[in-house]
Write a protein that binds this DNA or RNA. Structure first.
Lengths: 259, 259
DNA sequence: GCGGTTTTGATTAACTATGCGCGTTTCCAA
DNA sequence: TTGGAAACGCGCATAGTTAATCAAAACCGC
């Protein structure tokens, strides 16, 4: 170490760190070290300190934002950290948004990636029933309205009659939906009836409905159905999407974007 | 030392120092020394004095602006333990809750401390308009219902007509409220009209209303009033609470608990 | 001016934060 | 299940920061 005249203060580094985490959701130690200009050891120490404070969760190889858990089979670190196609799907979805739209964001990790991209927007209004989306957007960016309702622990979303009552009063320009499974025959399906009911409400209130579903979701069927293929305006997926499903979408008049 | 006649008085230096800090948020000791034209030793002495006064926080290598604005103490074990009386107030509040109550939790850091204590309960229903309370309770514990509405960035709470519509449908057994200021003459006051409106809704829907306010809140008046002393059933504070205020509470028939 | 007090600046010893090396743990894919 | 690679945590060395001490300068009432 020769001469680091004005080294950064630890507190301000923590701020940056938390900011980065909020923005990106999940980051590896090496990325943080590079972004902050310190060694990996220091990043680990910072993470340990901040974790004690409760502002983030550490995982092997990095850290993730927020206290919210991940619904799905406990994301294993590497797949979710990489998750490049979810990111690309989110970026494609961003292009479907017009400056002053009222946007609905459903739960699910792909939609969450879109939420992070919306942090930079300020003219938008975002409506959501997802606690994790709310956390991401709570610091600023677009106007954010949460539907409220009863909290479903597993998915970290709000559902039930109160949610319905709030959604009924709204008009949505475009709704971005996630799903557990989707197929030409069964439509979209998810695990929980209350969740499905809320999703249907959102679909019904929206002028355009966009499904964000990576290719692994196709052909899968879960427990409860929440709408048919023809309710959708657009589907965004990746190129591994089965050809048969794609054909069915075209037949139903649904635009398909592959990234 | 051939100094000028008009040597700077310590007090005016303090004012400059605090001004700089507010402006920049975070500064290192050496920068301050240069800006003020004194030695680093003097700056440290000043910082130590001002920290005792509470106007700022010292950190290794410098100082950062105090909690002049909203409190978001940037989770750090050192700072979070800086409020033992808030913890004690929260513990006293816990005793007022009965097993199957429907509990409303307002925003504010003291109420947040109570939320953490409720994590162990499972029979309760918690209603809140605070995103941070929702985060704390999202992992489990009591049934949690969020009111929804538009997100106020500064306080991380949800307010507005949607919030009202949801609250209107509810009955609450006990509401735990925070406040910016409270006094016998002015009642409770807060900074934002929409926030105040939501607080009034909650007060109106609750059988019992409990104010959690450490002694520094008494005698303070903020911008918008949200209810009178007599709307409260109980006030929980610490022993430094002014005697005059206490007398006024007794006169209004409000129970007072000091921890 | 003159002692006594207060404030400031310099010096130094103790402390804290950081980076690096190394042994241990965790993860993942044969 | 097991082997290898990546990630982790700990100890140590170092540089930067702080608190303690002391002396000089400024202030103050007389």
């Amino acid at each position: 170490m020769s001469e680091q005249v004005s080294r950064e203060l630890a507190e301000s580094r923590w701020r940056k760190l938390q900011g980065l985490l909020r923005q990106r959701g999940i980051l590896r130690v090496e990325e943080l070290a590079a972004a902050l200009g310190v060694s990996a050891a220091t990043v680990r120490r910072d993470l340990a300190a901040l974790e004690r404070g409760g502002g983030l969760r550490r995982i092997h190889g990095g850290a993730m934002a927020g206290e919210g858990r991940d619904e799905e089979p406990l994301f294993d670190d590497k797949t979710s950290m990489a998750a490049p196609q979810k990111q690309r799907i989110a970026e494609a979805a961003l292009k479907l948004i017009r400056p002053r739209d009222i946007v609905y964001l459903d739960g699910g990790s792909t939609v969450l990636a879109l939420a992070r991209l919306l942090l930079a927007q300020t003219q938008l209004t975002v409506v959501t029933n997802s606690l994790r989306v709310a956390q991401v957007l709570s610091g600023g960016g677009p106007r954010m309205i949460l539907t409220g309702g009863e909290c479903r622990t597993l998915s970290q979303t709000f559902v039930g009659p109160l949610t319905r009552a709030v959604l009924e009063q709204m008009h949505l320009d475009v709704a971005f939906m996630g799903t557990i499974g989707v197929s030409a025959g069964q439509g979209m399906t998810t695990t929980d009836p209350a969740e499905a009911f809320t999703k249907e409400q959102a679909l019904a209130r929206a002028t355009r409905a966009v499904l964000l579903a990576d290719s692994t979701k196709f052909g899968k069927t879960s427990f409860v159905r929440f709408g048919a293929i023809r309710d959708l305006s657009t589907v965004i997926s990746d190129r591994q999407m089965p050809a048969g499903e794609r054909k069915a979408l075209r037949k139903a008049g649904v635009e398909t974007i592959l990234v």
